[in-house]
């Protein structure tokens, strides 16, 4: 096929490669918000996806319900044994909550970093190319969603809001391979150990918690929660449990492999966490000056 490399075609190919590189460069840099044509396209497809998703979810939900029914008996048994534990915990929490309110009154401090407004949302689409683990939810700017808000399910943290349009937003999952995807977390035991969630092990499907001081001893199975030090996420959102600990490639810090608490697949209903108070506010409670 000699005419394939005719001059004209070759030029078209080269020009399109230049456009491609320019477009990639434009989209990779850290953008504050999407351009309006993108927002328009996303809103329009989001509208159709929302409609398309309803019957699909209905059928999928039905199948799942039938599956659940099969396990009901065993689950019931297990839950009954845990009920007593729950009652004890509940009374403890009530006492602590009351004490917390009283102490806050004494200190004259009403706002807390821990407080947040939940925005409930439904997943309407997921990126089929699974390099960039992103899902689209049906809540956008007009519902109060903003960039960088944490997204959780009832079990724990799943990711953060990457971008928003008027009626939809894109959620970047924890398993995404974005080096900018860093979350400040802590392990709260007798001594608090801080680190960052950075990266995801594709093969073992575990999150990597890095930058842990080398002399800290971490028990297998310890709970990892967000520390709130990054200034983006509220503290206390569960992230996962430690599976194993290794020293990093230079031997200066340790890396903990964390099994995510929340299911990162098979998502349906999620909650966007709108932090009541951000670090920017002048109130004393926001005075943790750690960069994310």
């Amino acid at each position: 096929m000699p005419q394939f490399f005719l001059n004209k075609r070759l030029i078209v190919l080269l020009v399109s490669i230049i456009i491609l590189v320019a477009l990639i460069g434009f989209s990779v840099r850290d953008r504050e918000k999407l351009s309006w044509p993108e927002q328009f396209l996303k809103d329009t497809t989001g509208f159709v996806q929302n409609i398309f998703h309803q019957p699909v979810q209905f059928v999928a939900g039905f199948v799942e319900n039938v599956n659940d029914l099969q396990h009901t008996y065993q689950e019931n048994k297990r839950l009954k044994t845990r009920l007593d534990e729950y009652v004890k915990l509940k009374s403890e929490v009530q006492v602590l909550e009351k004490e917390n309110v009283e102490l806050r009154e004494i200190l004259d401090k009403e706002k807390s970093l821990r407080k947040f407004d939940p925005i409930e949302a439904t997943i309407i689409a997921r990126n089929p190319d699974m390099w960039h683990e992103k899902t689209i939810i049906n809540r956008g700017k007009i519902h109060g969603v903003q960039k960088n808000m944490a997204v959780i399910t009832s079990k724990g943290l799943i990711g953060k809001v990457k971008s928003t349009t008027q009626f939809t937003s894109t959620v970047q999952l924890l398993s995404s391979l974005d080096p900018k995807n860093r979350i400040s977390v802590g392990i709260y035991g007798k001594k608090t150990i801080y680190g960052f969630i950075e990266g995801f092990d594709q093969k073992e499907r575990l999150l990597l918690m890095k930058k842990i001081p080398y002399d800290e001893k971490i028990k297998k199975g310890s709970e990892v929660v967000t520390s709130g030090l990054g200034g983006v996420f509220p503290p206390g959102l569960p992230v996962g449990k430690v599976e194993k600990v290794e020293s990093d490639q230079y031997g200066l810090t340790q890396v903990a492999y964390v099994k995510p608490a929340a299911e990162l697949y098979d998502l349906n209903h999620v909650i966007v966490v709108k932090r009541e108070q951000t670090v920017d506010s002048s109130d004393g409670a926001g005075a943790e000056g750690d960069d994310l």
Binding site: M1, F4, S16, I17, I19, L20, V21, A22, L23, I24, F26, S27, V28, L34, P37, E38, L41, K42, T45, A125, N127, P128, D129, W131, H132, K134, I136, K162, S163, T170
Partner: peptide, 27 residues
């Protein structure tokens, strides 16, 4: 391009590859 905008947010990759591979396959 729609795929790039809606799903991956990295513009151009799939638009270029879909069109380019369609051309290759037709050849």
């Amino acid at each position: 391009f729609l795929f790039d905008v809606v799903y991956t947010e990295i513009l151009g990759v799939y638009a270029f590859l879909f069109a380019f591979l369609a051309l290759v396959v037709s050849k």
